[in-house]
């Protein structure tokens, strides 16, 4: 397939996934804002989250204080903010439009209607958009897009590159959220005090892991188990291990003459997680691990781009 086509498909999926990740984060904070809870905790959490997403500076440039309603709009529907959900959905649609011939009609129409609807929502303004409903809608559209692509696309390179985009973005998203909460996850961080259950619910809900946690571990929430679930469990769809597994498998399906090293690195990332124990990761330090992991995801993204998507001139 054309390198440029693969590139657009990859970014199309990354942007849809990014929009969903943002929606989950918003959802978690929005729920928190409805509880009789210290306003400071909410603000702190929003600040940490914006920092992890690298958008705090952009927010500060336009708003003086961290104020939940302003943050929600900024992340959700601000058309002048390049990393808002609105901008992600526009970018996903623009990438799809550039290669609409390589998509099934159903997939294109799904992305196009998502864009038309979100554009209409953004035109209404903050007072007329219900954040709770909005994030539900974004998640639904993301589920629909993924479902349509799985249900209608031929299992060829177009599909594999789009999957690589999804899981690379998801790995990055999960790692960022974990980074925002790494303090809570350190063993002994709360010195025997049961950490704030609301904090935990933000983290777990942001990764669609709240119900899964209850199901898998049954007992109370402990830092070790939370980290284990989100990092090392292969059956948890948003865990780092799961994402690495998907990236590796999909990369192997598109292998070419120059991609051996990229595949090796992806395999190594998967292998390291696969053979790790949570206790060992904790001893070596979670922040160090997460920083290293985020760096590897970035490196993999760059290598995929130069091996497949925008190869150096072959002339």
């Amino acid at each position: 397939m054309l390198s440029r086509t693969a590139d657009h498909l990859y970014w199309m999926s990354r942007y849809v996934e990014r929009a969903e990740n943002l929606a989950r984060l918003l959802d978690a904070h929005y729920r928190m804002s409805l509880l009789p809870h210290a306003a400071d905790t909410l603000r702190d959490s929003l600040r940490e989250t914006m920092r992890a997403l690298s958008i705090e500076e952009a927010y500060r440039a336009r708003h003086e204080a961290i104020e939940p309603t302003a943050v929600f709009w900024f992340v959700a529907l601000d058309r002048d903010h390049d990393h808002s959900i609105l901008s992600c959905l526009r970018a996903a649609r623009e990438n799809a439009r550039a290669v609409r011939g390589a998509l099934t009609s159903e997939l294109w129409e799904t992305l196009n209607s998502t864009w038309l609807e979100v554009r209409a929502l953004a035109a209404r303004g903050p007072a007329d958009v219900d954040v709770g409903q909005f994030v539900e809608w974004v998640k639904e559209r993301s589920h629909l897009t993924r479902g349509v692509s799985i249900g209608t696309m031929l299992r060829d390179e177009a599909f594999y590159f789009s999957r690589i985009g999804t899981f690379l973005e998801r790995a990055d998203g999960t790692a960022r959220i974990l980074t925002a909460h790494q303090g809570d996850l350190e063993p002994g961080a709360h010195a025997g005090v049961v950490p704030d259950p609301f904090e935990w619910s933000v983290l777990l809900r942001a990764l669609s892991a709240f119900e899964i946690y209850r199901r898998v571990y049954r007992g109370t929430i402990t830092p070790l188990n939370v980290a284990d679930l989100l990092i090392l469990r292969a059956d948890m769809p948003r865990s780092l291990l799961r994402c690495c597994k998907e990236i590796y498998q999909n990369l192997r399906s598109v292998t070419n003459e120059q991609s051996a090293e990229t595949e090796r690195r992806a395999g190594e990332m998967h292998g390291v997680l696969y053979f790790s124990r949570m206790e060992d990761l904790m001893i070596r330090g979670l922040p160090r691990f997460l920083a290293q992991f985020t760096g590897r995801v970035r490196d993999l993204g760059e290598r995929i781009a130069s091996d497949f998507l925008v190869p150096p001139t072959q002339g």
Binding site: M1, L2, S3, R4, A6, E157, F161, V254, N256, E257, F308, L309, P311, T313, Q314, G315
Partner: peptide
């Protein structure tokens, strides 16, 4: 930008060369 000419032959740049 997806095409190039070498030895009077036109090629497209694909993910497999």
């Amino acid at each position: 930008q997806d095409l190039f000419v070498r030895d009077e032959t036109v090629y497209m740049r694909t993910t497999r060369g």
